[in-house]
Design a protein around this nucleic acid. Structure first.
Lengths: 211, 211
DNA sequence: TGTACATCAGTGAACGCGCGTTCACTGATGTAC
DNA sequence: TGTACATCAGTGAACGCGCGTTCACTGATGTAC
């Protein structure tokens, strides 16, 4: 078992260190500020060393994105399972996990959702993102079964829910929310709670209106 | 009146041409692909010429963002005013204008919302973005007055609405929507329509539940 | 336990490149008289 | 209408820089016998 072997010629865990430092740089300075050379220097290693672990810069970014989707999925599952056994509360939990993940892992989040017309060709990556998406899909269907969301094709509901949490996360991470007037940490639970309340209200109204 | 004077030593309208070409490059290849040198070449001008119109790269980007917020504001106003005189429909129109703007002006959109912790120091820019934000705020308040949205502090409603359309726009522009399974052009009106219906349903429920 | 050897994971110099920006210059345009 | 001159908006060469990536190399590690 040799997880930490920092001194000496061989680093011991350079791959994960490079990922960690990258994420940290992106957190603080954005994706465009990430250079492999500066990265190697920060990791205390020569400029050629990263190429023993990643074929190129894109490979590093894809690895970060993949790890991000896994972390996101885990966060959503664990918060969902810790929620009261109520469909609306579970949806709420997943939404909060999403926003919370973005804010606590802005580096991962940015890399995961950078313009990915080219990255869509990475099968492992799109599989990981679809898996996270399915968690949201499933809980929306739970809501429908429980009468906490309007019946019918869930697609619009799912994409609306995703858009809501993704938008809030993006605005927050990109610093677009006027933090002087609003506290995002307070806002986020209110927003996700509003969503489940609105879905429930619409479901109730539709059932009541049905002859 | 000399708007077009393309041939000859003086370009005639180089500033706007540089903006247009920039937006086009960003549309197609993303912000990080924009280089002032390549830009100058594409505009048919030497590499130093842009510096007679912009102090540096950031100044160019700030100008694009500013223009973007103006275009967005105009689009929202004109669609809102073309909508039926019904608060829900007007909210719907503003939301659709937002998403539609992002999709038809992805270059502007990306620059407007790139991580702006530093760009927040540009007063003209934040004023322009606040003006667009106020349009959304006003229409949400209209909805509240018309009983088409729950009463109380509008902040959560406004930020939720903004998050919803911003998230949808972002996911679309960044190519994150699985276009094989869903047509964003069909999805967008459904999503904004769902929002106004949900707000109205929640308002109705709350009024009915009040003793 | 010791030795030979393959493999792994570093080094560090070097490459070519495109970038943002500067600067002395010059051609074109507008204006005052 | 013509001339002198200031100003504007280009040119194009040059700068220094940091980047991604390659490559021959070497030290460290693991394994077979």
């Amino acid at each position: 078992m040799r997880i930490q072997k920092k001194s000496g010629y061989h680093h011991g865990d350079l791959k994960q260190t490079l990922i960690d430092v990258s994420v940290d740089v992106i957190n603080r300075a954005g994706l465009e500020a990430l250079s492999l050379r500066a990265l190697a220097t920060q990791a205390g290693v020569s400029s050629g060393a990263p190429y023993h672990h990643f074929t190129d810069r894109n490979d590093l970014l894809a690895t970060i994105a993949l790890q991000g989707f896994e972390l996101l999925g885990q966060a959503m599952v664990s918060r969902r399972d810790a929620a009261p056994p109520d469909a609306g509360a579970r949806l709420d939990a997943i939404g909060q996990a999403y926003v919370n993940f973005a804010v606590t892992h802005p580096g991962h989040f940015r890399v995961m959702f950078r313009d990915n017309s080219p990255a869509a060709r990475n099968p492992a990556l799109s599989a990981a993102s679809q898996q996270a998406f399915r968690l949201l899909f499933a809980v929306i269907e739970e809501c429908q079964r429980a009468g906490a969301a309007p019946a019918g094709n869930p697609a619009t509901l799912v994409y609306s829910a995703w858009s809501l949490v993704h938008g809030l996360a993006t605005l927050w991470v990109d610093g677009a929310l006027p933090t002087a007037r609003v506290d995002p940490a307070t806002l986020a639970p209110e927003v996700t709670r509003l969503l489940s309340r609105m879905l429930a209200a619409l479901a109730t109204q539709e059932v009541a209106g049905r002859p």
